[in-house]
Design a binder for these strands. Structure first.
Lengths: 224, 224
DNA sequence: CGGTTGTATGACAGTTTCGTGACAAAACCG
DNA sequence: CGGTTTTGTCACGAAACTGTCATACAACCG
């Protein structure tokens, strides 16, 4: 399992990063101050560290230097400041990369991956979307229910991913036909059939679906 | 002396980069096309390569892949496009960093420095990838099953490594053709055949593969 | 309540996708 | 050069998947 430590004092940003990284398949942990982060990294080293520059107490630069002192872990700075001087200083202090907020999680993930390739560190985690006991991993082409793999067909899988990507939002049959099948027009019953088949596989009680819900007259949605 | 190769088709930008890097103390050389750049790098390897994404003929992504194929040189993309999708694709292709034009030369220089520090710090620790009782050492060119060496052909080995590097992720036949064979197009049955042959060698029960599994309609993946 | 509209589902036939053995071309190797 | 291994192509059978349809069921509405 690949671990990431996020050192960031803003609770909301830290939480958002942690949740997003978790979806990307990382095992995450967070720290609100440099001191706490250093302590955590010393006790139980993560495979990657994300650091904010503006931290209370010990600042980001110093934090990077100290991390670097006793570890070769890849360090990525995530800062609001988009200033060449800061970037150079951070890299000079020992950081490996520098991203400016707001960061696109996919980019962050890709950069972490590139960095790990260089550092020959941990393996790639596989992103997982979770809906209660239902787990969907688009990259692994896998669906699990209560931990057990569920065999789904390609069409079902695409449909499920489409719904999962827009979790909680209704998608009309037309939209689904368009996005999953690429049809601009077609029989909407087709969607019903596949939704039905999917329910047989992923719902505990297919007659009373908890995740893959029908919204009469509107379409379907996937809920947690 | 540290050498940098700049592959960029716009003469003015290439020249500007070369001059600026020269001021930074690098020994520089430039190429106007991917083909020329690849040739130069093969003949006389630089310590860093800068690549533009929009090149005439062979595009930047392909250029990166080919550079990566026979070299571990740090690659930095310098592109006008500031798009998450491009960034992810470039990093995925094997780039180490991605900068958006116009670049601050001080930042570029700092990033190159950080990258070289990394590249130098990781002298191959001969990693072994393990999948249950299956062991693959990409560097040693060896495959073992329950400790016993398994003779695999070059093609099979590359296919296996490609799958192993992305353990747990589905790779489509197209992707495999592209990455293992370098084909941009071709008969997808070819992949099937080699997967079949590989299974005969590495699976306990080739009829019921445990590691090299098929995901109908999606492709293949290697699991633990 | 009865009519109307929208949704679920089982069956089925046509199509797609896979795995495999056979074989020839190509590469390799003394 | 002759033998051996590896590689790519092909064709075919088996298995899995897909979309359509008909019917049954449920929800809504006045």
């Amino acid at each position: 399992m690949t671990g990431v430590l996020v050192i960031e004092d803003d609770d909301r940003i830290r939480l958002a990063l942690l949740l997003a990284l978790e979806d990307e398949g990382y095992q995450v942990r967070g720290a609100g101050t440099a001191e706490e982060g250093l302590r955590m990294q010393r006790r139980e080293p993560a495979d990657n560290v994300l650091v904010d520059l503006m931290l209370p107490g010990l600042d980001g630069f110093e934090c990077i230097r100290r991390l670097r002192r006793d570890d070769d872990v890849p360090i990525v700075v995530v800062s609001a400041r988009d200033d060449t001087h800061d970037i150079v200083a951070a890299l000079e202090a020992g950081a490996d990369d520098y991203l400016v907020k707001p960061v696109a999680i996919k980019e962050l993930s890709a950069r972490l991956r590139a960095l790990r390739r260089r550092a020959r560190a941990a393996p790639d985690p596989v992103p997982v979307l979770t809906f209660g006991s239902l787990e969907i991993s688009p990259d692994a082409g896998e669906v699990r229910r209560a931990g057990r793999p569920v065999p789904v067909t390609r069409t079902e899988f695409r449909l499920l991913c489409e719904l999962a990507e827009h979790a909680g939002r209704v998608l009309s049959r037309q939209q689904l036909l368009q996005r999953v099948w690429g049809y601009d027009t077609g029989d909407e019953r087709l969607v019903d059939v596949h939704v039905g088949r999917l329910r047989q596989k992923i719902e505990d009680d297919p007659g009373n679906p908890r995740h893959l819900v029908t919204l009469r007259g509107l379409g379907y949605k996937l809920t947690r």
